[in-house]
Design a protein around this nucleic acid. Structure first.
Lengths: 233, 233
DNA sequence: ATTACTTAGTGTAAAAAATACACCCTATCT
DNA sequence: AGATAGGGTGTATTTTTTACACTAAGTAAT
């Protein structure tokens, strides 16, 4: 007996939620759609997966084509499969997210393989417009994910420039966690993690006392992942 | 301009990783396949999603049809989309998991809608056979998920009978975390969570001093979710 | 009834981590 | 020289985590 796979009109897609941090604001990368449905709406960068590419590969390709961002490693966070989430048929979409350094990546150059999107833009999450399809929901889940994750893994570095000050780092935490933190306790804890390398360099171009710059120590960071519930011994 | 969705021969499926705890062992629910490919192999309960059902609905239905377990709430944990994961074509599968009370659910009665599976069986994870497709990988990721999750959320109750002793609870933690825990510290911590209700009842049928039974207090539990990273103030 | 056996149940001291809290320092600008 | 703005620092208290070992209670066998 041999089972043959049915041929459904099913299709799957990827949607990417890319977070960036710039000018003290947390931003997300959106495209302006140039195709129906939802023509002219803002949407998360996303497109259909090809037959011969894995989800991870597709995510990287799609992000590149729509925004020009190259080689961005993304994590899958959830798959959205409501029957009517796409008005033209059944489309199950796999959500991916990444937090990236925005400096140097400010220039977005979509590869014009299609006229599917008009442009890609960084939008502050504080002023997020309504998004196409169920993208509000997808964004919300991704944001929840990074908020939870930053609470037990020091992952905020991914969003900062290579060299950053402790105050910048703290601001970022405050934006994501949406609350004020105590400066001394924050510094104590961060430095205690032992994943910051103090540099011999200072901030430049500020009109007040320049702060020390730090860099994030990848090797030590790798060891730190995941605290486990402990009951002693 | 109107985009029309292409008709690919793409298909998606659900695979379920259902954990149970019985006789001191952590078990997972498997089916014995009765169809090609991988006929006669053990596999996770899983099947194709219909055109007109959401992923969550499909998961519940498929689990029911293959194992007889009804109304099990499952969480989605990852979507597997390697190009060649299914020998007959492109099948992207969405992984769901649940931890359930095994008592009373011991009787598995697959609904014989297909001859796709021969039977469903609880297998101790210590003696897991090689599974069909990439189900080893799917299982592994689900197991990692519950292990991580139990480390910061007291979710182990879902696996225990309604009334349980602290020693049973500790054994379960030890099995999932794969390490010995200290009895006094474990009890102190668990009772401190304030989500256990001590009953006026004792264990029965044991040939030694009977332990007190506890019940898990749902209301208090709901408040406990997610600790946040704190920097004071 | 005594004894042997098995698991239940309990407390404390030490160390580590988290918290609350406020002032002086230093570079820049005028 | 003075004003401004953010940089940078310490300590005492509380809470949490950890290490560690014996007695109590019930059952079963004689």
């Amino acid at each position: 007996m041999e089972t043959i796979l049915p041929k459904f009109d099913s299709v799957f897609s990827i949607d990417c939620v890319i977070f960036g941090f710039d000018e003290g604001e947390l931003k997300v990368l959106l495209i302006e759609r140039n195709a129906e449905p939802f023509k002219d709406w803002w949407a998360l960068p996303g497109y259909l997966v090809e037959q011969d590419e894995s989800l991870d590969t597709a995510a990287e390709r799609i992000l590149y084509e729509l925004t020009g961002l190259k080689g961005i490693y993304m994590d899958q966070f959830y798959t959205f499969g409501d029957v009517n989430r796409h008005p033209q048929g059944r489309v199950v979409t796999v959500g991916y997210y990444a937090m990236i350094r925005l400096s140097g990546n400010k220039e977005l150059k979509p590869v014009p393989v299609t006229d599917y999107a008009r442009k890609a833009v960084w939008k502050p999450i504080a002023e997020l417009p309504n998004l196409a399809f169920d993208h509000d929901q997808i964004f919300g889940r991704a944001f929840g994910k990074i908020r939870t994750r930053i609470s037990y893994q020091p992952i905020a570095f991914e969003l900062l420039p290579e060299k950053f000050t402790l105050t910048q780092l703290q601001h970022l935490y405050e934006v994501i966690l949406n609350k004020k933190l105590d400066k001394r306790n924050f510094r104590k804890k961060m430095l205690n993690y032992g994943i910051l390398k103090e540099l011999d360099e200072k901030q430049r171009g500020v009109s007040y006392r320049a702060a020390k710059l730090y860099k994030f120590d990848k090797r030590k960071y790798a060891r730190l992942f995941q605290k486990e519930l402990s009951f002693g011994k």
